[in-house]
Simulated scan of single mutants.
Amino acid sequence: MSIYDLEDTIDNFFTHETHVKRRQCDEFVLSRVRGLVNPVQLQGSCSYTVTAGTEKPKIFQFRGQNYDIDMKMLYLAKRIHPQLVARCIYHGTIDNPRDPGPGHVHIYEMDKLPGTAYIMARDISANQPSEAKFFAQSWRNNQYSDPNEAAGLLSEVKSTLRLLLRSRFPRQYLPNLLKVLEKLPLLFSGALPFVLSHQDLNEMNTLIDPETGSITGIIDWAEASILPFGFSLWDFENILGYMDSEGWHYFDNRRELEDAFWQTFWAKASNITESKKKLIRVARMAGLFYRYGFIWNGKTIDREVEASDASSIAYLDAFCMTDDW
């Protein structure tokens, strides 16, 4: 297992993702706010993120040329989750005048949200009611009403998942995958609301209060899209346990955590029938295959997972082999 190193990760971004120099980015930050430029402790592979400012600290993120954020999606996220999504300004791009050509970076300035990335506070259980309220906010904000758009989205998702049938994707997962494909038309029929789906709601992008476990912020909406409710529930699965070199382990109080989540969700959401509960489980499984069945490069699929992809296989074994979904 490789050891994360902050400076190596930053150097890798400026070596492989852009010809813009780190100094150029830091100088831009100092042209906007006073104070020291401090890189955040957890850097993404396709961006360089820093904090700066004394009275009201700001986050500045420099994203690779092909990893820009859809600002309409971000504004929508801010409207739906006003307390959990930072206000963001897009400042355009920076290029390197001495090395013109592809490789510029996109510049985003954001308010600094409180809290700590969940991956840095795994000894604190994430607060299930807090997470449930986040998902309930999505449920109550239906985004699609045009049948033609829904049909196009169904075709896209179906085509993507069917790639797994024509690849070296391990055969043991196919029974559940085929069940998902069979039920996809129901998911996109309007029986479930079409919601803003984060699509990368992992332990690095969920901020929590380290004292209470309550969610204080959701960051990095670059991969957000509109999908039937439930496609992002793989994130909820991830806070019920942890992965190590021996595979996936649920926490001892997993059932208690699940009950707390769903009881709050049923209370905060509305119009949840038994048939919709069944479809939510289908959407959850579809999201798990979407997440772990492919090797992703941002919003783009590099390839389908194979038996040699140990990390993805461990998650698929944990979540996509079950019969009781």
Score class of each variant (00 low, 15 high):
residue 315 Y to R: 11
residue 231 F to H: 11
residue 191 A to S: 11
residue 275 S to E: 15
residue 212 T to Y: 03
residue 237 E to H: 13
residue 24 Q to D: 15
residue 182 E to V: 06
residue 152 G to I: 02
residue 296 W to G: 14
residue 41 Q to P: 08
residue 299 K to D: 14
residue 296 W to V: 05
residue 320 C to N: 06
residue 295 I to S: 09
residue 116 T to W: 12
residue 106 H to P: 05
residue 243 M to P: 10
residue 112 K to G: 07
residue 252 D to E: 15
residue 85 V to E: 00
residue 261 F to C: 06
residue 289 F to P: 13
residue 279 L to F: 03
residue 154 L to G: 04
residue 31 S to E: 09
residue 114 P to K: 06
residue 236 F to Y: 12
residue 89 I to F: 10
residue 193 P to R: 01
residue 278 K to R: 15
residue 199 Q to A: 14
residue 13 F to V: 07
residue 225 S to C: 06
residue 315 Y to M: 04
residue 285 M to N: 11
residue 73 M to C: 07
residue 256 E to M: 03
residue 183 K to A: 13
residue 77 A to H: 00
residue 63 R to W: 02
residue 190 G to K: 03
residue 256 E to Y: 10
residue 182 E to T: 12
residue 136 A to V: 06
residue 290 Y to W: 11
residue 121 A to V: 09
residue 58 K to L: 05
residue 147 P to H: 07
residue 230 G to A: 08
residue 175 P to Q: 02
residue 48 Y to E: 00
residue 270 S to G: 06
residue 267 A to W: 05
residue 173 Y to D: 03
residue 204 M to S: 14
residue 165 L to C: 10
residue 134 F to E: 09
residue 219 I to W: 01
residue 23 R to W: 15
residue 257 L to G: 06
residue 32 R to T: 14
residue 106 H to S: 15
residue 95 D to K: 13
residue 42 L to C: 12
